[in-house]
Simulated assay, not measured.
Amino acid sequence: MTRLDDATYLEHIRRESARFAQVLAACPPDARVPSCPEWDATDLWWHLAGVQDFWHHVVSTRPTVPEDYEDPQRPEERDAVRAFFDDAHRRFVTALAAADPADHAWSWSSRDADQCVGFTFRRQAHEALIHRLDAELAAGTPTPLPTELAADGVHEALDTMYGELPDWGRFDPEPLFVEYRITDVDRSVWGQLGTFTGTEPDGTEHVAIPDQHVVDDPGRPADLVVSGTADRLDGWLWHRYDDTGITVEGDPHARERAFAVLEQPID
């Protein structure tokens, strides 16, 4: 799939962050966040504030690895949390607007192509989008995800969040293919099922863990087809929506293997 342009990602960061703050400002501070049950509304506000503060640091100090970043001290008062978010967001979007997306910059991705500011444009557009939905779920006022960003989000969730392959592990593919069919934009994202094996730097071992990676259309029928609108698929992949509007058809074994991957937490 063709990604959106960076100016569009930046506009989505602005728009979704503004909606996020608007919803939380009207939400009781102790309202629980159903999609993140360990958080209340103020915790959610502080989380995105910290995320945008961190990525402001990454962009502003590029290409330095952010080893000297210090987590901000959370204020006790909710109004101060909101003020910190407003300031972090302003600094973040100002830094992005002044940056060349092609500039070398650190990212947590293991892919060389992601070591640039463009990674932050895309990843943080989806971060703001999903947390906007979290805020609306806490307030009981969910609204649909914008179609083009959500369609891009289906690919980003599958490729970046589920499909990240650290350099200390390997993916062993199997001849099982899943087509994620985005019905309202007539596009598909293909995944190949397999297993992940590797040993983390701290010695933790992972052996034959169910895994999936985005691949080009293999030119053969899918073993499993998962269909839905961009809004429903993106929210479902992020475990924000139930399976209402999601259709799953195909081989039961492929379904079991795919769901073993999709049921894993992503954050």
Rank of each mutant, 00 (worst) to 15 (best):
V65E: 11
L48F: 14
H47P: 02
A95I: 01
T94C: 15
D231E: 12
G228R: 00
L137T: 01
D234N: 05
A31G: 08
S17F: 01
H155M: 06
P28C: 12
D71N: 14
E205D: 10
A80G: 06
R170K: 14
V189I: 13
I266M: 09
D186V: 07
D242C: 13
E263K: 09
E174K: 13
W236V: 01
A7Q: 15
D242W: 10
F85T: 01
P63F: 10
R181H: 13
R232H: 07
D251L: 07
V154G: 02
G235K: 00
P210W: 06
G163W: 14
A258C: 15
D68G: 10
V33F: 04
A49G: 08
D267Q: 04
D251G: 05
L262E: 11
V65P: 05
E11S: 08
L145R: 00
S110M: 06
A260V: 10
A31Q: 08
F92C: 03
E263V: 08
L133Y: 08
A139W: 08
T64S: 12
P252M: 05
D68A: 12
F84M: 03
F54M: 10
D186A: 10
V189K: 00
A128I: 01
D68H: 10
A41Y: 02
L24N: 03
Y180T: 03
L233D: 02
E205Q: 07
D87A: 14
S17L: 06
C36E: 11
E164A: 15
W190P: 01
D40E: 09
D40F: 08
R32N: 10
E263Y: 11
P252W: 10
G219L: 11
P173S: 12
D5T: 09
A26D: 14
W190M: 14
A7M: 11
I266F: 08
V189N: 00
H47S: 05
T2H: 11
D86Y: 07
A25W: 12
I209Y: 02
F20S: 00
H56D: 14
Q22T: 12
E179Y: 05
M161F: 06
V225E: 07
W236I: 04
A222N: 13
D172N: 15
I130D: 00
E16D: 13
A151H: 00
E11D: 15
S110P: 09
R123S: 09
G169K: 03
D100Q: 04
Q212E: 08
P146S: 13
Q264F: 09
T160M: 11
S17A: 14
A157E: 01
E11W: 04
R123Y: 04
H56F: 12
I246M: 04
A80M: 09
F171Y: 14
A95Q: 06
A151Y: 00
Q52S: 08
V261D: 00
V51S: 04
D114H: 15
T160H: 05
V154Q: 03
D86F: 09
A150D: 04
V248C: 11
